Simulated scan of single mutants.
Amino acid sequence: MMTVKQVSLLTGVSIRSLQFYDEIGLLKPTQTTAAGYRLYDDAALEKLQQILFFKELEFTLKEIKTIMSEPAFDKAAAFAKQRELLELKRDRLSAMLGLLDKLIKGEACMDFKTFDMREYYRILDDFKRTHTEAITTRLGSMERFDEMVRELQGNENEIAEMAEKQFGSLSGYTNAMEKNLAAFLENGPSVSPADAEGLSRKTDELTQRLTALQDRDENAAEVRSAVGELIEFVNACNGDMEMGENYWPFMAELYLSNPAFIQATDQKYGAGASRFIGRAIRAYLGG
């Protein structure tokens, strides 16, 4: 048996993190002494090792707990899958290091294909092979699914750039899109066509309410209230869809700097509306 301090020294995981894993039920100690000391055996260390592999692949603690508590959880299969994903991550990092070497030398290189999309396409291909009936039911035909993939391939650079900004990494984006696609195939759209028009109208109303305050400072209470209401409503509309932890900072950037986004927003809500919304969102988020 090893104490929590010994486990921390061996693994590099802080004592507080190990205590937190215990508190949330992710990794319980094998035994707790009468004095309250946590003790861990080899089986617990093996489980911790599995957790650390998942963390390296950017799974959240909640996701890791859900995966590992499944009755059908297969440790060997999980290790094999983790190895495959880590190889992809290694290859992506090697490509990024090569890109950085070019940039250090002063070479102009704006190729976002370095942020490799292969894993995302592999997941889409897996879904195509294993969810044929669901895809046909939801999209109408396999041809529509293939068309969607071709559209993605035609916008690789834009998607890679968006993924880095909105999800923090391409692997984070890939994990989120895999979950979103599975949820869509199982449950259909999070919003029914019958409700979509009403929700769009409500979003428009909230945006108009916000842009009507353009003469106020973006930190004003009424502006912050309007932004908060808009963000809360849009988040609710997205339901369980994974939008990325940087979704709203990314949206603020679009309102502030994307020419097409600015033009469309200003045309609908008035001159200066887009940049006002961007500044208001940033102020609300504390940035």
Rank of each mutant, 00 (worst) to 15 (best):
A77P: 02
Y247V: 09
A271H: 12
Q6H: 06
E253W: 02
G154M: 06
E229C: 05
F59C: 10
L256C: 09
F145Q: 05
D91G: 03
G270F: 09
A95S: 05
Q50W: 00
K81P: 01
Y173A: 13
T66H: 04
P29I: 04
D111C: 04
N219K: 15
T174A: 11
K55M: 09
I64H: 07
Q6L: 06
I123E: 14
F184M: 12
A220V: 13
F127V: 03
N219R: 14
N155Y: 08
F184G: 11
S141Y: 00
S169P: 13
I159D: 11
Q19N: 15
L254H: 13
E46T: 06
I135S: 09
G12E: 02
R209I: 00
A221C: 01
V4N: 06
A271G: 15
L152F: 13
G188S: 02
R275N: 05
D111A: 02
F250V: 01
C237S: 03
F250N: 03
Y37L: 05
G287K: 08
G106I: 00
M251E: 10
T203C: 07
R279W: 01
Q214F: 10
T265W: 01
L85R: 09
L9H: 14
G198I: 10
G172E: 05
E197N: 10
F73W: 10
H131D: 15
